[in-house]
């Protein structure tokens, strides 16, 4: 099992201070700051295009920040010293189909300066971790999607990083593999590794992360533990309503109702953030009738990060 290399970090493993990055006129990341101590799994939660990937690319030294600083284990991000202690797991499987699982790991290990017995040890360790030791000699092209994902993650551990950065590692993964991946990520924190985990799945962030930073339109709008974030909602409830028809118009009508703090449309659903949800339901259904919308399902949900996101940004996480 992977262990964390001894690094003299009494303070945070990762310190992000006021980083900003533009692409032309578009402000992709706007004055984002956060820090992560050893052993903590920090989730960056936000919809697609919120700035998560740009942020982690700056952490991994793949992009320069226009302003602000990123320090990893005391080293400025992008330096060879910083890169040596970061494990990066990209969103897509960045491995070679025409190489075997072992060859892929050996190649990536060599890029981290590993060789000889140490390289062999690390490769075996990564293969064990991904449950692929018995298929190490097969070409990656013969692996299932889930197996490739597991190896993609294991490859990020070859250098025994103090900071592991995972960019939406479960996108396009079947539920079983997703479960396995999330279990592994949880174990990394227990090993003392600091982990940055980006996702737009609220359930993943709730399940895996010790703390969550909510990012929207390049800004970190809130961060804290799940409890701390949900407490921001106060007594509010979230109501998910499945419907057909002009649900945008219905959502607009709901926003005008007393007791509705926010309404957003996502995946043929209207999400409402309300005070005393059960009392407000008749008025919501009346608005549906008024706007000609057919309601197919009503679900009053316990306060969660999705509701927090709606509360903070006025939009749904998966909009």
């Amino acid at each position: 099992m992977a262990t964390v290399e001894a690094v003299a970090t009494k303070g945070p493993v990762l310190e992000v201070s006021g980083i900003t990055r533009r692409f032309g006129d578009r402000l992709a990341v706007d004055d984002v700051s956060f820090s992560i101590p050893p052993g903590e799994i920090y989730g960056l939660l936000g919809p697609n295009g919120a700035g998560k990937t740009t942020t982690i690319k700056m952490i991994c030294g793949l992009l320069q920040a226009d302003s602000g600083t990123v320090r990893v284990a005391g080293h400025q991000a992008g330096t060879l010293a910083a890169k040596a202690v970061v494990g990066y797991v990209p969103q897509d499987v960045a491995l070679y189909p025409d190489l075997t699982g072992r060859e892929n790991l050996q190649f990536l290990g060599r890029l981290f300066g590993l060789s000889g017995g140490v390289l062999d040890e690390r490769v075996d360790e990564a293969l064990e971790l991904s449950d692929l030791a018995d298929r190490a000699g097969e070409h990656l092209s013969s692996y299932s999607g889930g197996m490739q994902r597991r190896l993609n993650i294991a490859a990020g551990l070859l250098n025994h990083p103090v900071l592991l950065v995972l960019d939406e590692p479960t996108v396009g993964v079947d539920p079983q593999s997703r479960h396995a991946i999330l279990e592994r990520v949880q174990s990394f924190g227990q090993l003392g590794m600091a982990v940055v985990y980006t996702t737009h799945y609220m359930e993943e962030a709730e399940r895996v992360c010790d703390r969550v930073g909510i990012i929207d339109q390049g800004r970190l709008v809130a961060e804290g533990t799940r409890r701390e974030l949900v407490d921001r909602l106060g007594e509010r409830d979230r109501i998910d309503l499945g419907a057909s028809g002009d649900i945008e118009r219905w959502a607009e009508a709901c926003r005008a109702l007393d007791g509705v703090d926010g309404a957003a449309v996502a995946d043929h659903q209207v999400q409402l953030l309300v005070h005393e949800g059960r009392k407000l339901l008749p008025a919501v259904l009346e608005a549906a009738e008024r706007t000609g919308v057919q309601v197919s399902s009503v679900d009053v949900v316990e306060p969660d990060l999705e509701a927090v996101f709606l509360h903070l940004t006025g939009t749904a996480l998966r909009e």
């Binding site: 991994c60 030294g61 793949l62 060879l80 010293a81 890169k83 040596a84 970061v86 990066y88 990209p90 969103q91 897509d92 499987v93 960045a94 491995l95 070679y96 990536l108 890029l111 981290f112 300066g113 490859a155 250098n159």
Partner: peptide
Amino acid sequence: DQGNIERMLAAPLR
């Protein structure tokens, strides 16, 4: 395009 170059660049190399 497949992210392999980016992964290489994340390693401690110039």
